[in-house]
Design a protein around this nucleic acid. Structure first.
Lengths: 268, 268
DNA sequence: CAGTGGTCTAGACCACTGG
DNA sequence: CAGTGGTCTAGACCACTGC
């Protein structure tokens, strides 16, 4: 059966599978299994916000009927999306669109943890927005955001403190169009992860990110903002965060004070 | 059917599944699916080196017969082990025990890449063993390796260079017993990743690792070894690597020069 | 061509959630 | 209790590898 083309009228194919039903030339240079095609369809419904963050998607049986495939095939598609953190399965309840707002996976992308252990002993970070303004993308920012040099961007600078100690200085660049209307006040007033605000206010869900980490020394302005002597080595963490189509939607440069914290990474 | 207890003689259970066959009291406080039990059995064969790195394990059908479960159940167990990088599936050929010796996933745990992009433009690192000697574990090393302070350890110091530029200074600590017989010469002579040598020479396969990353300034000795001026900020990467039972088998402290390289991390 | 992993189906039953 | 995801089976066929 085909998930994309109209169902074949051939009953003889009931148990078989189109060897290569869709979007391939007659030479079928690339074979794509059915569940991958289903995955793409589900992905499209996520992108189009037919199903929104934190809400439930249709049950596996419903989707199987909708796409005219077996439950097992839908299941495998959902399995992969769940392992990519796009969906969350909850037994007995349903399958939900992942969000940065849930308590459990909040700050999924922040890998800085206190020396004392990873517990939430420090509680949430205090956040201070230093600056939020419109500007034009420099070459490096433009490259990171896949836009043109000089295109309009929003630029945010903020300081995060743990236990009243300034620990992170962050500069963010966002493409101006999707984030139109973002202001320092909105950032300040919002209580929760910034990526959760992006979801609810701008319909932009960050799906994955890449970081480049270096050791650097701060300049004088950075020293002031972090309340740190010069010659204090800092972690420079440059992040590019992506939405659904691998479209970059944020560039961020963080300076981490690592005398009482460290960047934790698991290697699998 | 049970994978661990003797097969039940009850044919009526052919399509059903033991709701909780094994290792649980009558109250079954923790339910463990069959494929998880199979996973444990496969894991045991890996630990006991019944199947060795780079060799093939029995086919899915063979394992299904051996464990008296269906192929699909074996399949799910293998799927998980493959996603944990313990096994590697190769269509048409078989399923193989993962190893650090294969070209493709060599240096899986080394996240430092050149600015120019991640290509192998630099070729392999030049390695120089500075020191390799027996000593006694300090408190921090002992904690990391889950041994007692003062227990015998092997201590290695080496410098890695890329394009003839010293870039990484590493100190390693290994528990003396499993690595008995390791010498500087063996390290120097071996051509390939250190973890591959550990597999072939000592039967120790590293399965996962955790890293704590900080920014630091080098002391004078470190400056000399890295041929670096003082006040050069460096990445401090402290790693603990684990074998099969989550047993720590190596502690490593690396200093990375990050002016021409960066530590790359993918956030999912 | 045989043997391996990879996909798909259909159907049964289990575990968990909430009304 | 009905509805959801989770597990398990049996059997068919496809894609890939190597002899």
């Amino acid at each position: 059966m085909s998930a994309i083309t109209a169902p074949t009228s051939d009953g003889a194919n009931a148990t078989g599978v189109d060897s290569n039903a869709v979007a391939n030339g007659p030479l079928t240079p690339a074979f794509s299994p059915l569940y991958q095609q289903i995955k793409v369809l589900i992905l499209q419904s996520l992108q189009s916000r037919e199903w929104k963050p934190s809400s439930a998607i249709p049950s596996e049986m419903e989707l199987a009927n909708r796409y005219k495939v077996s439950q097992g095939t839908v299941r495998k598609a959902i399995d992969e999306l769940a392992s990519e953190n796009l969906l969350v399965r909850r037994q007995g309840k349903g399958t939900f669109v992942a969000t940065h707002a849930e308590r459990q996976v909040q700050y999924r992308f922040l890998k800085l943890v206190p020396d004392s252990g990873d517990a939430n002993s420090e509680g949430p970070a205090q956040r201070r927005i230093v600056d939020c303004r419109r500007s034009r993308a420099q070459a490096d920012v433009a490259r990171g955001l896949a836009i043109r040099t000089g295109d309009a961007v929003l630029q945010v600078r903020r300081v995060l403190s743990f236990a009243s100690i300034a620990t992170i200085l962050e500069d963010l660049w966002l493409p101006a169009t999707p984030f139109k209307g973002l202001t320092a006040e909105r950032l300040t007033d919002y209580d929760g992860p910034m990526y959760a605000l992006f979801e609810t206010e701008f319909g932009v869900r960050m799906v994955r990110a890449e970081e480049k980490i270096r050791a650097v020394l701060p300049d004088t302005e950075q020293c002031v903002l972090l309340n740190t002597p010069p010659n204090t080595p800092l972690l420079s963490v440059e992040r590019i965060a992506y939405t659904y189509n691998d479209a970059p939607m944020e560039m961020r440069r963080g300076l981490y004070l690592t005398d009482k914290h460290y960047y934790r990474n698991a290697l699998n």
